[in-house]
Structure formats: structure tokens, C-alpha cells
Amino acid sequence: MKLSMITLAAAFAINTITFTPTPCQAGDKNVITGKIIFKGDLAKYKRTKINTSKDPNCKKSKKTIGSEKVIINKKTDPLTLRNVVVSIKSGLGDKVFPVSKEELKVTQFGCQYKPHIIAGQSGQTLRILNGDNTNHNIHFLPKVNDEHNFTQPKKDMVKGKTIVLKAEDPFKVKCDVHPWMNCYIAVFEHPFFDVTGKDGTFKLAGMPDGSYTIQAWHESFGTVTAEAEISGNTIVTKDMTFEP
């Protein structure tokens, strides 16, 4: 489909831009790709509208917002899941990979975090911006990272706030003023991770030859893992399924 093509292209573009080219080695073009399939009762996981009447300033920028706990891509076949973090869990050994210089960004817009899932590499910086004309309180609930708890009371307060991330399993970030507002941050030691979008696909690229355990994590459904072996600049397809 068109959208997935764009996403793929974008993902590819980002990957090519962000990864500092290391001296050519076997496996540079290795790709693990696949879909995150949802098998379950669609009716049970309907998205609901969020009542933002508490703060009229939330309404101004957008009409309605929906819950983000479970987002199923209904237009894909099979049904796929959005906002799943896919990453290499083990198999990389002690290899060290350069950290992307690119800054991650999350914007509070319409009283939701955009994007809802932020995936990054240890040492990468995250910039938090407020696009709403209202007060937000950003509260990190991590185990490894620093427990940030700060406010952004005004729109576009200069440059927002930057935070350097440390590797950690996905943790929640919530807004204490708007209780429905939350997002997740996943930080890895390596650059081989991806977040599924509207097409429910992921793509991990550029890892060295080897056999890996890959993990898919979803905020409501937990994790699934799969094994993948890759060598010689090939593309391996590995679909993973959540069956709640």
C-alpha cells in the first residue's frame, strides 16, 4: 500500500541518515522485517473518545482525541498492531554501536503526546516541546533514567526541554494535569529497533551477521519474542503475533 511504502521509505531514509557509516563490513545491508499481527477480539479493543472537557484549551487545537492504549490497524490484512516497539533483544554480544546524533522529539499537541512511543538509543537526547496553549506536567516513571517531573506551563516555551536518555525497558511518561495523557519511552544500547505505524510493519537494518532474539513490546499486551538468523546482506522476514 501507499502508506506503508512511504513509511518504509521514511524508515529507510531515517536509517540511512542517522546511522553513521562504519567501515564496510559483512552484514551492513542485513534487514529483518515483518508485521506485528493482532489475533484477538476486535470488539474488545475499540478505541474510545477521550473526554477533554476538563481543559478547554485541549479542545482548541483538535476536535476529539482517542485513547491510545491499543490501536489496531483495521485496514491491514491480517490485522496489525500499531505502537509496538520491535528490537533486538540479544545476540549482539558486547559490540558497541555509534550513537545517533539526531535528537528525538516529542510534542504535546491537543493534549496528547506525539508520538505516543518514543524509541531511542542510549545517550541520545530527547527534546520535549509543548504545542498546546495550556499547562502540561511531564512526569517520567522510569527505573533507570532520572525521574523527571517538570512543567511546561506555556506554549512553545523557547526550546522545550532536552533530556539525555539511558538504556531502559519501555517506561511510562505521563502528564499529571491531564490524566489521560501518556506516552512510552524505550531506550536501547544499540540502534536496531523500530516502532510499528499504520501498516503494522517493522524493519531492523544494518546489524552484523548472526542469530538474534528479537522482541516486540506493546504497552497493553506485553512482549513476544522470535528468533532470527541473518547473514550476507539478506532480508529476513519475521512476523510476530500478539494474541491477547
Binding site: N135, N149, F150, T151, P153, K154, M157, V158, K159, K161
Partner: peptide
């Protein structure tokens, strides 16, 4: 409320007064 504090507003750093605007904390 929420307006940039003149002159001394920028002395207090990002964690306290980003852009001269005092944060609630």
C-alpha cells in the same frame, strides 16, 4: 503570569525559568 521576567529572568537557567518564564516548580 507566564510573562517573561525582564532583565533578571534569564539568569536562572532552563530548569527554573526557561526563557525568563518562571516554572511552577
Amino acid at each position: 503570569p507566564g510573562e517573561t521576567m525582564p532583565i533578571i529572568g534569564n539568569l536562572f537557567g532552563e530548569a527554573a525559568m526557561p526563557g525568563g518564564v518562571m516554572l511552577p516548580e
